[in-house]
């Protein structure tokens, strides 16, 4: 159902008759127009239809205990930002499956203390590990309550994996006199694992959701199995854009 504002300037009865286009009467301005068949067609795509898709943004905080020597600063310093798309297939009012694909950036701000071991015992003014990841997840959605064409209240039980596209290790040190800042960035860190798996849950109402993910695989590669583990939890908020 749309308004159309279309003015054509081909005046004259003869000209219009010769052209003979559907509904045409050249020079007339269509102010309201509707094709009822288009407006009343039953669709299979929608928040509570058979299929639904949307993009979303998420922000989560790193949570949980780290191994001794791999402590991180909690709060906004260690966090994950993610954005992706979700495709939902509904089986019933209460059951659906989601497939997610997206990008996330995860940053651990390492605590600088005497026990520090990761990635080296050396202390800096600040130090952080950053992971650019492409992730994919599958989730089973359990909806509560009857509803119309809306997403409603739900719990997602999710499992997925991430491919670490790029990594970086950023350190900031005390500058020498006359230098304002000294920052060193290392890319392509060999000790960070390339593939990670995680499980989690998401609970939401319509476009808003709280999500918690638990990393199953170690943060560091097999050759670094002795290193203390980074926190495995990320908990935060997701907002669907639909």
């Amino acid at each position: 159902m749309r308004y159309l504002f279309a003015v054509n300037k081909l005046p004259g009865l003869l000209c219009a008759l010769l052209l003979g286009a559907n509904f045409a009467a050249w020079g007339q301005q269509v102010l309201v127009q509707a094709n009822v068949a288009d407006d009343t067609v039953k669709t299979t795509f929608g928040p509570n239809r058979r299929y639904f898709g949307h993009v979303y943004l998420g922000y989560g905080l790193v949570a949980g205990q780290a191994g001794t020597g791999a402590e991180v600063q909690h709060g906004g310093a260690s966090a994950e930002l993610r954005g992706g798309g979700r495709f939902k297939t509904r089986f019933s009012q209460a059951l659906a499956v989601n497939l997610d694909l997206g990008y996330s950036y995860l940053r651990y701000e390492l605590e600088q203390n005497a026990q520090k071991l990761v990635p080296s015992p050396a202390l800096h003014r600040r130090e952080g590990l950053g992971l650019h990841q492409i992730y994919s997840e599958i989730s089973l959605r359990l909806n509560a309550g009857r509803r119309g064409n809306s997403v409603g209240r739900y719990v997602d039980l999710l499992a997925g994996g991430s491919w670490v596209v790029a990594t970086r290790h950023v350190t900031e040190d005390e500058p020498a006199p006359g230098i304002s800042r000294v920052e060193t960035t290392e890319y392509g860190l060999p000790y960070l694992r390339r593939w990670t798996g995680n499980v989690g849950t998401r609970l939401g109402i319509d476009r808003y959701a709280l999500a918690a993910r638990y990393r199953l695989s170690p943060a560091f590669g097999p050759a670094y199995a002795a290193w203390p583990e980074l926190p495995r939890w990320v908990m935060g908020l997701e907002i669907g854009l639909f």
Binding site: P11, L13, A16, L17, G20, A21, N22, F23, A24, A25, G27, Q28, Q29, V30, L31, V32, Q33, A34, N35, V36, A37
Partner: peptide
């Protein structure tokens, strides 16, 4: 304004429009 619609035998509209009228030949329908 000129209003027009197409109605099926059950009285259900299939199409309708409202037009501003700026000339006397205002509508042609196949």
């Amino acid at each position: 304004y000129l209003y027009w619609n197409l109605t099926d035998p059950r009285g259900v509209l299939h199409r309708y429009e409202t037009r501003a009228v700026s000339q006397r030949l205002v509508l042609q329908v196949p």
